[in-house]
Design a protein around this nucleic acid. Structure first.
Lengths: 161, 161
DNA sequence: TTTATTTATGTATTTAACTACGTAGTTTTG
DNA sequence: CAAAACTACGTAGTTAAATACATAAATAAA
């Protein structure tokens, strides 16, 4: 499939999605191999709460980099699993403060060694002649500085001259 | 957001998805700047048919690397846009043969210069100290050779020893 | 101190992919 | 050549994210 060599925009994005989906599925299976019932998608919330203890919905959303509706649906799942609980903020009644349950904290302790293995393996997969994580960082930074669209429009106008 | 440094599995996949979504949206806007009404997601099908001329549904799915149901829905959109048309294969009545319409072919000619610009910009964004495309290739190859799960399970069993 | 604006949360809908399943032709095999 | 297996296509339903919209509480401004 050399579509990418010929034009790219779509190809790169679908390949990135594939790669990520594969990693996600394998991640779930790997947890299972430890007898742990944990979905990779829950990780960012759990991990954030592990370090920050108590946060509101929007604060979590910002931490994990998702929109708040997406975050809410994750929180619902985690609440169903009894890994987190929430209570109203007494100072600001609009806020729902989220924190880990005891069960959630215990689970984290169980998962820590699993995360270590995952981290190593992921590092190994990403570490090649061209390091994937660094490549992503570098590409993200370039786009942050000037978006794909801005760059394309600029090149277009230069060519017209 | 240093989640990735601490554990990774989810973080890498969501970041990849973000990056790809951004590129996709900007791609659509860039087409629009040329007055072309074309969605980046249509590209693989159109591009494939540009080179192969006539293909069945499943053949296209294989070429673009999507499942056939996904491909069918793309084909429906493209048929609605009158960019492709289809006819039954007279030899194998199960098959639907797809090809570009005249309108589709004209559109491709209009898009070619746009693709050139996109290719350059994408190349520029991806080409850093660590080349993103090559990094993706290398990571994909590693996984192809031995999956994330296999690697993780192996490391796990080594550590138990 | 009303009124307007902003912030926090939640719901509904959309999108783009997937898997699972069903049906109808085609090919292989006993 | 009839039965079994396979292939091609299509539909239905699921998932994980997003947007868009709605409401309520808090804050700022007139």
């Amino acid at each position: 499939m050399n579509i990418i060599d010929e034009s790219g925009i779509l190809a790169i994005s679908t390949r990135l999605q594939r790669l990520s989906e594969q990693l996600r599925k394998d991640g779930a299976l790997f947890y299972k191999s430890y007898g742990i019932d944990f979905e990779p998608k829950w990780f960012p919330v759990i991990y954030t709460l592990h370090h920050k203890e108590v946060l509101s919905v929007v604060e979590i959303a910002n931490e994990i980099g998702y929109t708040h509706p997406s975050t809410i649906s994750l929180l619902k799942e985690l609440e169903k699993q009894k890994l987190i609980r929430s209570k109203k903020d007494k100072i600001d009644e609009r806020k729902r403060l989220i924190q880990l349950t005891a069960k959630g904290q215990e689970l984290i302790e169980q998962m820590k060694p699993v995360w270590d293995v995952m981290k190593k393996v992921l590092g190994d997969i990403a570490d090649n002649q061209n390091n994937l994580l660094q490549a992503i960082n570098e590409a993200e930074n370039k786009i942050l500085h000037q978006s794909f669209l801005q760059r394309a429009l600029q090149l277009k106008s230069e060519e017209i001259k």
